[in-house]
Design a protein around this nucleic acid. Sequence first.
RNA 1: GGGCGCGUAGCCUAGUCUGGAUAGGGCACCGGGUUCCUAACCCGGCGGUCGGGGGUUCAAAUCCCCCCGCGCCCGCCA
Length: 598
Amino acid sequence: MTEGLDPAATDPWEPVVAPLTVAVAAALTAHGAAIDPATVRLQLDRTGSERGDLALALHRAAKLAGKEPAAFAATIAAALGPVPGLLSVSATGAFLNFVADPERLARATLGTVFAEGEHWGHSRALATPVCVEHTSANPTGPFHVGRVRNGIIGDTLARVLRATGAPVTTQYYVDDIGRQAAMVTWIWSKPRAEWPEEARAAVAGATPEEEAAMRPDLRYGRPYSAVSRYLKSHPEAAEEVAAISRHLEERVDVPRHTEIARAVLSGMVASLGRLGITFDEFVWESTFLFNGSVEDVVARLRKAPHAVQEANGAWALDTTGYGLPKETARVIVTRADGTSLYAVRDIAYHEEKFRRFPRVIDVLGQDHHLHAKTLDAMLAELGASRRPEFVIYQDITVPEGGRMSTRQGKVVFVDDLLDEAVDRARAEVLKRHDDLSGEEVDAIARVVGAAAVRYHIVRVALDKNVQFRWEDALSFEGRSGPFLLYAYARASSLLRKAGADRPTAFDPARLATPAERALVRTIARFPEVVAGVARTTHVHALAGYAHEVAEEFNRFYESTPVLASGAERESRLALVAAARRTLGNAMALLGLEPLERM
RNA sequence: GGGCGCGUAGCCUAGUCUGGAUAGGGCACCGGGUUCCUAACCCGGCGGUCGGGGGUUCAAAUCCCCCCGCGCCCGCCA
């Protein structure tokens, strides 16, 4: 679809910005401030205001030229002849303000939107294949909201990278041999009568039939916290779990282990599916143990320049030279008994990734930050030529303090949140419609509920803790997922009523009201936003942009008649179609399903 | 104790990388708007020592230093 198109040409602002930066750089250079166009572009303020669409501060350039700033700005403004795409240039104090030609921008913007359709906003800037690993929670029970932030960030990032031309493979790394998975197997392979009292209590109340009907992650996950607590005070039981772990590592058959792990994972994945999160591949940690690659990594690490053997026979790596804090510089490679640790197995996994992908991105919670640095140091020690890029996000915290924790009972499960969101959405739908079937109502409620939850989590910057509060997570107003869906549905309704699904004929001169022009300017920024998110991994910026588009569309909608308008009707319908397309494409990148009506 | 991240109105949040002109939104609260295209909306109002102090600069929410608060990490767990 976009074949043959110059990637830069798909950004409607580009035909304005490119000649402008060249012209300004030339004027500055001619007046004693030698600055190249690239620097001008970087310093150009594109936020837009009532003063203009673009602005440039000239204080530094004035200093360079040895002139008084305001006078210098006036000189430059006067020196700039007509610039293609610009309506006016003015100097205010030491600032230069530029107003883009709105008709030209409207023509370029709507034209590009219609030409590119579902690829509008996308580019082919990043051609390098990339593996995005995210979520990777242990198969021990249902997802809580804290865990799912990883999946929402990872899935959104994968969608954005695909939209910028990268072939993306998403992976979920399943730890099927560690202590956590062993705990689940340990309890479920015991007769119920031999379970610790607290574990029995955790599963009480369900008949065998009810239990069999439960989704596997819910079913097998119930005794997990009780078992975890029990093991802390019962070393003999902890030893049994450790034995299971060892057997797994030694490939001794552990009855039911794989069956349970797979079942639990299938339930967890179903839960993520409700949020639109899917994976291309599941990678089982055990494969690296069984195919000999862990053994190989261990052998190479023991011969590495900074390898040291402890008195008890354990092997470690001194990573002091890699910038890790002194206290954590000694990384254990193998235990005294010779068995491997998670960090070492993760190296085998990453070496495998790099054999297949030139670029590797890992989405990790902040609790794994040190692990990420350690992994990087160990890969360096092994002479790896490529390193993973880490996308680190902060935790979701709860009002009573600290992050969510299943074991401490400070937890909200994804399914419970989604169920509540869908229930509330259903009530909202029923308030407004009596013409829909039960299935239609349910279908809308499912989409709206999922959008509310997913948007609530992506909207916050990665490096910020998200405070979880039910009422905020379930908001259908203001800066929310349903707000986006609502604007989309309104636009869809207009086009439906006009009987024009794909209006493409428009006259830019007819889009002259402030609301129309503001909407065009916002739509035009979409490609830049997508490219920026791909570059920075700041997926929350996309959530913010989508809200802006919906907001501008709503303002336009409230202030401007479309169907009942006269000569402007066709052009306004085209603008509605462009807004709907932009919103739809942005929502697709955010993993939100559009609704034609709600 | 050491390390990483964060601190913006009653609450949540954008902007910090790349310093610029009155710090954008949302929730809550107050006041308006529907014989008209979906009021899950729009318009107006209220509300800000950008955690505190110092520094750099013509200019600091943004850069540097110190301090305070919060989250997390510092396992031969994962």
